[in-house]
């Protein structure tokens, strides 16, 4: 049986990958399912990638949101 992967959406404002209908952080429902690139920030305080992207919270983010 083919199990279709759940389509994850991304908040257009903070680029965070969200499950559900609204962004947990921004509270907006301005979500997009057309996105590319993926970053998982585990330790934002010590991560250079997080600094470059101005991310202060751990979580999953998209690099590009349309």
């Amino acid at each position: 049986m083919v199990v279709r992967k759940k389509v994850l959406k991304v908040c257009r404002e903070c680029h965070r990958v969200v499950e559900g209908e609204a962004c947990v952080i921004c509270g907006t429902s301005n979500l997009s399912d057309d996105w590319a690139g993926y970053v998982v920030i585990i330790d934002p305080e010590h991560s250079e990638i997080a600094k470059k992207m101005n991310i202060t919270m751990a979580g999953r983010y998209a690099l590009k949101v349309r």
Partner: peptide, 8 residues
Amino acid sequence: VMAVMVPE
């Protein structure tokens, strides 16, 4: 590991 990146 501080971060994981998956570029398209």
